[in-house]
Amino acid sequence: MGGLGAGIGLRAPHYAEFAAARQPVGWLEVHSENYFGAGGHDLYMLERARAEYPVSLHGVGLGLGAALAWDEGHLEQLATLADRIRPHFISEHLSWSATGERNLNDLLPLPYTREALALLTERVQRVQERLQKRILIENISAYLEFAASQMTEGEFIAELSGRTGCGVLLDVNNLYVNQVNHGSDAQATMRALPPESVEEIHLAGYFKSDDCLIDTHGDRVAEPVWRLYQTALERFGAVPTLIEWDTDIPPLAVLLEEAAKARAFMKAGHALAA
C-alpha cells in the first residue's frame, strides 16, 4: 500500500488529544480559511501538527467558478498559509460561491458547459501559477442540476484535469448523494476519470431529509458509500483517503475507527490487486 493511507480532519475539539500524543492517522486535513489569521491558537496548533504529520489544505471559500467575482486577496492568503505549512496537497472545489454583490459562502454547483470549462481552466491555471503547485479539484454534492449542461460531471472534471494538469479529489460521498438526489451515475463518473488523475478520496456521512440527501459531514460513512469506495479503490488504487466530519463533531475515537475501516478496505483492495 503506497502513500499516506487514511487521514482525518484536524478539528479544534481534538487539538488537546493531538498535542498530548501521536494519533494513529497517516495525515491530517484542515479547511484553509480557518487558518488565514496572522497568528493565534489555531495556526499554532496546525504548525505543531505539521511537525508530526503530512497536512492537506482544503479550501472552501475561493470560489473558482464564480464568473462575476474573483478575490485575488483570498488567493494571496492561501499562498501565505501554504508557504507556512508546506502542505502535501492543496485542494479546492468544483463550485462557485459569489455573485458580484455578495458571497454566498456555500459550494454551489456549476453548469457543465464549455463556457464554465474555459473559466475553470483559467482560474485553476491562475491558482497553480501563484501557488507554484499542482492543486486537486473536488467534485461537490449538489441538490440541483443545470439544464444547460453540455457534458457530464465526469467528462467535465477529466477535461479540466487534462487542460490544467490539476489532480482530482474524488469525494465518494458526494457521488452517492448526487446519484440519489438527481439520478447521476456514480460509477460512470468514476469511469470518466483517468485512473492516474485521482490523488485523494473523501468519505463522509450525509443526512437524509424527506426530499433528498444533505451533505452534512455529520455522521459515519454510510454502507452504500463504503461499497462505492471499494469500487473507487479498484479503479484508482489505494489513494490517500480522508474521513471528513464537520458538524456535531464526535470524539476522536469515532474518527479513528472510521479511518481504520478505510485503511482495512485499502489493504483488502491491495491484496486483491497483488
Binding site: 454566498l104 456555500d106 454551489l108 441538490y143 440541483l144 442540476e145 443545470f146 439544464a147 444547460a148 438526489n181 438527481h182 431529509s209 426530499d211 433528498c212 444533505i214
Partner: peptide, 16 residues
C-alpha cells in the same frame, strides 16, 4: 434553469 420538476427545484433552492 434546472433539470426536473420546477416544484422540486424550488424545494432544492430552499436547501441552498
Amino acid at each position: 434553469m434546472f433539470r426536473g420538476d420546477p416544484e422540486r427545484s424550488l424545494a432544492r433552492l430552499a436547501v441552498y
